[in-house]
Write a protein that binds this DNA or RNA. Structure first.
Lengths: 259, 259
DNA sequence: GGAAAAGTCT
DNA sequence: AGACTTTTCC
């Protein structure tokens, strides 16, 4: 028996909006500690990892570990039937054939009950090694999204250079080049606009803009995004939703063949 | 060495939005007095003339005349990477191979640096004779845009009749006819909504609505537009942005063969 | 919360 | 290029 009640249903709606273009099918691994989703993207280039801790639900109950194989497209369609203010309850009985979704309107005068057929998905739960990253950059998620969108005009890839003085995104293409630099700063009026850099070593890595743009679809989930970079290690892009949930993306750097 | 800093960067963004569908490639003729762009439209029917006087920039420096051949589509793409509030600086060294663009965010924590490859464009700087126009009509630019859009439904061309009593736009097509008349008036509350007519002789001229509609894409640049008309002379449509910049369109009248 | 504008997708 | 969706402004 699995049951999880999420008072802020929009969280789940936004997560599926963020992930659905990257992954089509994935397991919701439900356990005592919460719900985890981990999947390679469709082209097996990027990795998505979502965690919804049990403490973010009220109540949360999961008697035994259950991998719920979900077609994210179908789930997203069903979640579009929930209002942004709705309370969402997820349910699965021990057979694990279907995922039940209950949408309660805020004033409780409207109840939506949906059932999603589940599927068996080969579990390829990858262990992600803990890494001590050489550079950790925290910035406004909207800024990150904007920069990715801007540089897409110039090229298909971006080089990220992190130094103490700032983080620089550079692209070079047919008709020209573009570079955006953010300096670390605190904005008292706009706390979410702050940029901070922790650095043990300068890094310079190149990534596919297509994937970074897809990652940045998580912008509605958090005002801030954190980039974790190290040489020859996949980039980690993390969006934290309070303390009880996060969505993480991993992307391997491109090999620098232009030097 | 050429360098021009424009505190109101949105001006440049809007100019490119206004012109990009009419002209694909053009020279930015930079000189001591400012930046001028003059080009026939792609079908060689209309003429666009943009002037950005040096006084509109701070600072402005241009050691020698330089024609910077620009693909307006590419430039527009780069300008989309600038925020509406950004300060834009244009730069070119004497080689004239590239145009540098620097976008500074208002609070200076974000710098975008772009380079656009330049091209050689055959200089066809046309001398535009000064004309004493028979009719000069000043009206709200949004009104002009609206009328052009409305009459496009009726026909592909519009006849503009100017008399002391008003300016009349008439179209006639398959399924009907349309006419919009504006009377001269002053609006004390809405100064920009005023319509004024200076007239030495009544005129009646017919123009392609396609081009007038393209001209009216300059609406965001100025609340007012001025139409200069004379018999057998190209129409001049002028949008003034303060005293230091303007954009002018010229369009030859259609031959009246329906009479 | 609605309308207008921009961006994105077909 | 057009329509739809999304975002921003009022």
């Amino acid at each position: 028996m699995f049951e999880a009640r999420l008072s802020q249903g929009s969280l789940l709606k936004k997560i599926l909006e963020a992930v659905k273009e990257l992954v089509t099918d994935a397991n919701f691994d439900c356990s005592e500690t919460g719900i985890a989703l981990q999947a390679m993207d469709n082209s097996h280039v990027a990795l998505v990892s979502v965690l919804l801790r049990a403490q973010g639900f009220d109540p949360y109950r999961c008697d035994r570990n259950m991998p719920l194989g979900v077609n994210l497209n179908s789930l997203n369609k069903i979640l579009k039937c929930a209002g942004n203010e709705d309370i969402i309850t997820l349910k699965a009985d021990d057979s694990g054939d279907t995922l039940g979704l209950i949408f309660e309107s805020p004033n409780n005068d409207r109840i939506g009950e949906y059932e999603l057929k589940l599927m068996d998905i080969d579990q390829e739960h990858l262990g992600i090694p803990d890494t001590d990253y050489e550079a950790i950059v925290r910035m406004a998620s909207s800024e990150f999204q904007r920069i990715m969108r801007d540089l897409t005009v110039i090229s298909e890839s971006v080089t990220i250079d992190v130094e103490k003085e700032g983080i620089k995104f550079t692209s070079s293409g047919e008709f020209g080049t573009g570079a955006v630099t953010l300096k670390p700063h605190v904005d008292i009026d706009n706390e979410e606009a702050a940029t901070s850099i922790e650095l043990s070593q300068s890094v310079s890595l190149t990534f596919s803009l297509k994937y970074l743009t897809l990652f940045s679809k998580s912008t509605p989930l958090s005002d801030q995004v954190t980039l974790f970079l190290s040489d020859n290690v996949p980039l980690l892009v993390e969006y934290k939703m309070g303390d009880s949930a996060y969505i993480r993306y991993y992307l391997a750097p491109k090999i620098n063949d232009d030097q």
